[in-house]
């Protein structure tokens, strides 16, 4: 990890010094123990702040999209001859690279507007698992050494093997290297148990419909509609989200459960074949809603019905964004025949 971090800083520094990029989006140490936070580096000197470790959680694809989108908008107000290109460098692991592929497929920006700094990834730490380790006690100090995490609270020292604290999506991830990169650093990380990817989905599918619905209702009841899930999602970039439209108003602003359920259902259905299972929505949810349970089912449908994995290759667009004559359609007329 240290080597990757060192190389990352060097490459970022070089790119900024040579003016190959305007900004590098990466991670820096957070202000709380055992955290990292997104950062935006614009000068070669600041590159020393960059870190790469298992506390780097969010998919940075969201920021790449926003930076370039804002730049494109601002350029519209500039005379054509004075317009300039902006290039964003981005620290990219497997899931982030797939998000960039989706954004490129959906023509959000040009390939030359991003410089992809590929890093190997062995997964990131789930804050909720970390919190469970300390029994909800505040972590006052913490460290990661030789694959072991230790966290000190008022009640003493808590220790765990890193792997036990990794987020669920990381445990079955098959993308330990980026699928697309301009500069790659470090050796491939240890592969996760990819063959178990859909185990949890299968188990959930086998429950009676009433139980599945009850679970959905229970999880949705936690949602406070802060929309952090939507806002962190690299695939959720509509200029005006349906949730915020007022003519017509799709979603009421009160606390009626059906409004929350509708918001989440609509958002999920926009994710079919576009969700890279980066887990960012789950990681940022302040209420701990189990969104992945439902998103992973849609991901599994996209794979089983269309043989599609989101953002794996530039030339393979999402099934709902492309038309093929031999597309399956039996499940539309007879829902039971499909997945």
């Amino acid at each position: 990890m240290e080597n990757v971090e060192k190389k990352l800083r060097e490459e970022a520094k070089r790119l900024l010094s040579e003016k190959k990029v305007d900004v590098v989006v990466g991670y820096e140490a957070g202000t709380l123990p055992l955290t990292a936070t997104p950062c935006f580096i614009t000068t070669p000197e600041e590159t020393e702040r960059l870190v790469w470790n298992p506390f780097c959680v969010q998919n940075l694809g969201k920021f790449v999209h926003d930076l370039l989108n804002q730049h494109h908008e601002a350029q519209k107000r500039v005379k054509p001859e004075a317009r300039r290109k902006k290039v964003v460098g981005v620290v990219t692991r497997g899931c982030t690279s797939r998000s960039l592929v989706i954004q490129l497929q959906e023509k959000q920006y040009e390939r030359e507007e991003v410089v992809i700094l590929g890093v190997p990834c062995g997964g990131y730490v789930d804050r909720k698992k970390l919190s469970a380790l300390t029994g909800g006690e505040e972590i006052r100090e913490g460290s990661l050494q030789d694959g072991r995490i230790s966290a000190r609270t008022w009640n003493g020292e808590h220790q765990a093997v890193l792997k036990e604290l990794l987020a669920d999506n990381c445990l079955t991830c098959r993308f330990n290297r980026p699928v697309l990169a301009d500069i790659e650093m470090g050796e491939a990380a240890t592969a996760a148990e990819a063959e178990r990817e859909y185990e949890a989905v299968r188990a959930f599918e086998n429950l009676p419909a009433e139980e599945r619905w009850a679970y959905f209702e229970k999880e949705m009841a936690k949602c406070i509609r802060c929309c952090a899930c939507r806002n962190v999602c690299p695939s959720c970039y509509c200029r005006i989200c349906f949730a915020e439209q007022s003519q017509p108003q799709w979603i009421g602003i009160g606390s009626d459960p059906s409004d929350t359920q509708l918001f989440q259902l609509m958002r999920m259905y926009h994710m079919v074949g576009r969700c890279v299972d980066c887990g960012s929505c789950v990681a940022v949810c302040p209420m701990g809603v189990d969104l992945r349970k439902f998103l992973k089912k849609l991901d599994s449908d996209a794979f089983e019905l269309f043989g599609h994995r989101a953002g794996v290759a530039l030339e393979e667009p999402a099934p709902l964004g492309a038309y093929r004559e031999n597309d399956r359609e039996d499940f539309i007329f007879d829902p039971k025949s499909g997945a």
């Binding site: 935006f40 802060c226 952090a228 962190v232 940022v284």
Partner: peptide, 9 residues
């Protein structure tokens, strides 16, 4: 504000 997700938490 750059990294803010506008979630209002």
């Amino acid at each position: 504000h750059q990294k803010c997700l506008a979630c209002g938490t």
